[in-house]
């Protein structure tokens, strides 16, 4: 779900969403991970998205 808050994070005093609409809290969360953990998170997302896309592709009709 996209962020809807532009108020300050309780941990940082900086806004969670900046003036460009970038979710800074999401970046801070990513920065707490190792590089490989960041990559694994994206891999899982892509795998799931591609699976859903394939399940919903129109099947050929003979």
């Amino acid at each position: 779900m996209p962020p809807t808050r532009a108020d300050a994070s309780p941990q940082t005093d900086r806004p969670d969403v900046d003036e460009n609409g970038v979710d800074r809290a999401q970046i801070r969360e990513m920065l707490r991970l190792t590089p490989e953990e960041r990559l694994r998170r994206v891999e899982a997302f892509v795998e799931a998205a591609l699976e859903i896309r394939e399940l919903n592709e129109p099947r050929s009709v003979r």
Partner: peptide, 8 residues
């Protein structure tokens, strides 16, 4: 992504 950007 490896640098921490929340993109895909």
């Amino acid at each position: 992504i490896l640098h921490g950007a929340p993109v895909t």
